[in-house]
């Protein structure tokens, strides 16, 4: 008789190389956002940005099983999604710096960061804006007879938008291959979910649309990965949509103008002890996927990539002023 395999789902399910790559990307997300924050403070980036530091496991574990043909729609807090889905940090920095080499040729910036070639249909500045679009992408896959799925990232704030309810309802009615992934970081800007949302768990709302809904620890890589594995399998099998709620926390404010009047220092520090990257790294070492030196090497690679990315962005050229109306319509 064989003993049951008690190792976490991710360790059991993914190859060591994939797990190492996942850790690298989580570091990359963290260092990218720190680099962006630093560049912002140096005046190299204008506008604002919404950082997801502290939510890296949710982004990365959600995208583990996705291919470039699978689509995601992202949110204003979308840097992590973009990197997890496969974007290069150099072209992301270039976009943040407003350069022609950026993913959106300097027209989108942080809030519309996208990489259509790796299936990222774009971050969205409108809360809930991506929900119906994700359903539409899933409809395309189904009509065109593809097995692709669409993952729709949204925040806890979006679950009170009408678009959320309309989108979930249609996805369920038409049994579309879409997974709604709520990154519940506890606050829609300053308003907590307790004050804004009638249900305890946003996943509870899945029942209203006759789809499975689960709430998981969003800082636990393996927990998220397992929930997604189940939901993606259901979607690919043509059984319809699911709702996955990742409980997590953003260490930084809502945006760069947040003065943090609505959260206590204790609360933030408590969540910082639950750092998803440190947790995943420890797990990989504990199960012999990496040793300390290997983990350090992964972290160092991320730093090097970010430095090279910033350099690429700085040395890139800005769009021509005369092309301000370029890309409004298709060029004939």
């Amino acid at each position: 008789m064989t003993l049951p395999d008690n190792r976490p789902f991710a360790i059991r399910h993914f190859a060591p190389a994939a797990l190492r790559e996942a850790l690298k990307k989580m570091y990359l997300i963290r260092r990218f956002e720190e680099g962006a924050e630093d560049s912002y403070m140096r005046g190299l980036i204008h506008g604002t940005m919404h950082l997801s530091i502290g939510q890296e496991a949710s982004a990365m574990a959600t995208c583990m099983e996705l291919t470039d043909n699978d689509k995601i729609t992202s949110t204003h807090r979308g840097h992590g999604h973009c990197i997890a889905k496969g974007a290069e940090v150099g072209r992301m920095f270039a976009e943040f710096f407003g350069k022609e080499t950026g993913y959106c040729h300097g027209r989108g910036g942080s809030m519309h960061i996208a990489d259509v070639k790796t299936g990222n249909l774009g971050a969205n500045g409108i809360v809930g804006g991506g929900l119906p679009i994700a359903v539409g992408a899933a409809l395309s896959a189904k009509r065109l007879g593809k097995s692709d799925v669409t993952v729709c990232f949204f925040g806890d704030g979006a679950n009170n938008e009408g678009a959320f309810h309309e989108a979930l309802n249609m996805a369920a009615v038409w049994k579309l291959p879409v997974i709604f992934v709520c990154e519940n970081n506890g606050y829609g800007m300053s308003t907590s979910t307790a004050r804004s949302t009638a249900v305890t768990h946003i996943a509870d709302r899945a029942a209203a649309y006759a789809m499975p809904g689960v709430t998981v620890d969003g800082n636990d890589f393996s927990a998220v990965a397992f929930a997604m594995h189940t939901a993606i399998a259901r979607a690919r099998a043509g059984e319809g949509p699911s709702l996955v709620e990742n409980l997590t926390y953003r260490w930084r404010g809502h945006s760069k103008s947040d003065r943090n009047r609505y959260r206590s220092k204790d609360e933030i520090e408590d969540w910082m002890t639950r750092d998803p990257i440190a947790r995943f790294r420890a797990e990989l070492i504990a199960h012999g996927i990496l040793d300390e030196a290997g983990a350090e090497a992964v972290a160092a690679e991320a730093i090097a990539d970010v430095q090279a990315g910033i350099e690429f962005a700085r040395s890139s050229t800005a769009p021509s002023i005369s092309e301000v109306t370029r890309y409004v319509y298709a060029e004939v």
Binding site: K71, T73, L121, G129, L131, P132, I133, A134, V135, G136, A137, A138, L139, S140, A141, R143, G162, A163, H165, E166, A167, N169, M170
Partner: peptide, 13 residues
């Protein structure tokens, strides 16, 4: 809103 958005998403893909 949702219907128009689904059409937009489908057109995008």
């Amino acid at each position: 809103l949702g219907g128009a958005g689904v059409a937009v998403g489908a057109a995008l893909t």
